[in-house]
């Protein structure tokens, strides 16, 4: 099997993730999109590990490593989203703008 298939698939998956991060308003969906991007990376890691016939299978090890990190990250991220919901009553990413220049229209 050509390495191009998993590579193109990973690229598409990554693009879907980027689109989700940039365009979705719901913070949970943004987190999920980030997961999509990580998984795209994982596919690349495994695919190129096999294609390069790495004796130590560094790519696969690193993929496992990434999965663990992603699990930890999603836990942390969901906790933040939970707190955010408790605090604000919504989890829309584009409404979390307390750090912006507030008097833009006042002047």
């Amino acid at each position: 099997m050509s390495v191009a298939y998993p590579a193109v698939f990973a690229a598409l998956l990554f693009s879907v993730g980027v689109y989700g991060v940039l365009a979705r308003r719901n913070a949970i969906l943004v987190l999920m999109s980030a997961e999509l991007m990580l998984n795209a990376v994982n596919i690349n890691l495994v695919a190129f590990d096999m294609w390069l016939r790495d004796v130590l299978h560094g790519g696969q090890v690193l993929a496992l490593f990434t999965i663990v990190i992603a699990a930890a990250e999603i836990g942390l991220g969901l906790a933040i989203v939970l707190l955010l919901f408790r605090d604000r009553g919504n989890i829309d990413v584009d409404r979390q703008d307390v750090l912006r220049e507030s008097d833009l229209e006042a002047r």
């Binding site: 991060v21 940039l22 365009a23 990413v93 703008d97 912006r100 220049e101 833009l104």
Partner: peptide
């Protein structure tokens, strides 16, 4: 100066997704 400042502030709308779009 004030007008120029207002122009320069337009991208700074507080929405991280806009920033990320710019980054990308």
């Amino acid at each position: 100066t004030r007008f120029a400042g207002r122009l320069a502030r337009l991208p700074q709308n507080g929405n991280p997704q806009t920033y990320l779009t710019g980054l990308l």
